[in-house]
Design a protein around this nucleic acid. Structure first.
Lengths: 318, 318
DNA sequence: TTATTTATACTCAAAATGAGTATAATTGTT
DNA sequence: AACAATTATACTCATTTTGAGTATAAATAA
């Protein structure tokens, strides 16, 4: 079977490191030169030195940004040509493996040169619905997609699937990658022009990144949004003790929509994931009880995550 | 960044092709020599010839087994050393990308040499709970895991997470890979002995496969089980028209448990995924109405899949 | 004609959900 | 000290969803 390809392959491992801080969803971004596009921490997978890819990932993360990783999970392996513009000129073909990692709120390590925490939604402004449907969708994105993809046969269906239609196909917050890919194909993000897919000179939507790193970030956000619903990963974004309000704010940050406070509390309390510490946090208003994640007697629990919902749908007519 | 590894890398693309046929969950298996372990269709990713990995995958599937693929989805990229025993002696390190593909029930193409449809659960006998909890779990698997992993610090928690504890941590049908990996680590599957991880000579659990192909199969089954719950992929395993009973049987086949007939019908009818054709199928008993999948007006729909459930939990005390 | 088998319809109680209203406990302001 | 503002928390209530049946219908096989 190993008839072997004629070309050699280089595998890049890139990691989207996310955290929630002061009401902002952030990721660890690196800036090489001054002023160029930012990038994720990444480096080649070297099987001699890295027994597994996760070991490789941790090496690059350690060397490039000083962050302690909580949850780490592989996202996707991208191998399509032409999406790695700007890579060092190496005669090898590049395959890109993306990872998602979560960092606790209060981690130190702000120092590493050129590394900073960037606001994720600056790169995906159409994904933040916390203050309602972003205007840019109807003002620009949907009309432009419609115009630019009118040639494609199935484009209309793909757009409706990804961005939501009217009542029948609602916005699905998990389709982050599908939306980004459509914008890329339509030439609405700068990466498309850079890769030679679009001759557009207008500034694209959101901030752009090196290589295919914004695509990896999109995959990370979509995966995290999905995972929240069935595994308690949200707690990896929380400090040791937290109020239920803070937990809600972090959840809203990730899924990009607002939730009903009383019902969120009921949901969380009933889930058994948290236990009260007895302490309270004071700020303005009535003090809130501090909770902690309950990896109580059972080390890890496979319980359902926090299922959040979009609101009752009015009964479909017949 | 591309400081380059010193070793070259070979990427193998392997595909688990599943279908449901006559009440059996099957996958497309190949036998090279007579009598050796079976394998999945696979081959190297060759960037010169394959613009994307999915193109490569389709080439190897076409050449090795004659099957038309419906849904295709990437599963995971495995790069840990030592799990590829039996690979052709190539000085390159092997990275293995696994894919899941679904084939319609009634596809032809039985011919390709050495290719057959194998019963998936023969390779994972502990995963089929349709007739209740498999006896092998308590008779052999759990005691052996307990014994063999007693050295590992966190083993007990991992076992309980993967195989379910008593009341608090129920069996989660999606953790197929986690269970297989535990059995591998404990030396309870033949692949472990073959890879030099275990000196066991006793026959392992379930049929073994070449390379890491059973691991890919485990990943495929787990992913499919999870996906059923939120996307309508089950219909990719169904013929054009089907009775609700057949749909239920196929669902049960995949998730490995039995469902309540009347409630399943209610769920499916309400979901809007199917529409009646007016025709009926006759067999023994009252004829059943034939339905078809409704990619009606809207080409694809992002609606929730068929959520199936394990039975009401009695209220937790307190 | 009757038993058997399968499909389909309907019931009913429990639990979960969406959307509030009501009340409590603080801090900041007058 | 009184009160407004703010936040947390408790509770209500109508609907919907869910689990688990019972009842009835329409076929085949004996």
């Amino acid at each position: 079977m190993s008839d072997s390809g004629t070309t050699d392959i280089l595998i890049d491992i890139s990691t989207a490191i996310l955290r929630a801080q002061d009401g902002v969803l952030q990721f660890r971004a690196l800036q090489d030169a001054n002023d160029g596009d930012k990038r994720l921490p990444f480096g080649p997978f070297m099987p001699d030195r890295h027994r597994t890819m996760e070991i490789g990932l941790r090496q690059w993360v350690r060397e490039q940004v000083g962050v302690d990783l909580a949850h780490v999970e592989q996202l996707y392996t991208f191998a399509d040509q032409g999406r790695h513009h700007g890579a060092a000129k190496d005669e090898r073909h590049i395959v890109s493996v993306g990872y998602l990692a979560l960092a606790q709120d209060n981690m130190a390590a702000e120092d590493a040169a050129g590394a900073a925490w960037d606001d994720l939604y600056r790169y995906f402004p159409w994904e933040d619905w916390r203050d309602g449907r972003p205007e840019i969708l109807d003002a620009m994105i949907l009309p432009e997609l419609d115009k630019r993809l009118s040639g494609e046969p199935l484009a209309a269906a793909r757009v409706r699937l990804a961005f939501g239609g009217h009542d029948d196909t609602p916005w699905d917050e998990e389709f982050v990658l599908e939306r980004y890919e459509l914008l890329y194909e339509a030439g609405l993000v700068e990466e498309a022009a850079r890769d030679g897919r679009s001759k557009d000179t207008a500034r694209g939507l959101g901030d752009s990144m090196q290589l295919d790193h914004r695509r990896i970030l999109a995959t990370a956000l979509g995966r995290l949004r999905g995972k929240l619903k069935y595994r308690p990963v949200i707690f990896d974004l929380m400090p040791d003790r937290f109020t239920l309000r803070a937990l809600q704010k972090t959840t809203e940050l990730v899924i990009g929509t607002s939730l009903h406070k009383q019902n969120f509390r009921r949901l969380v309390e009933k889930s058994g994931f948290v236990e009260a510490t007895g302490e309270t946090s004071r700020a303005r208003g009535r003090p809130a009880e501090l909770f902690r994640f309950r990896h109580g007697n059972r080390a890890e629990r496979p319980l359902a995550g926090l299922r959040v919902s979009a609101g009752r749908k009015s009964r479909a007519p017949k």
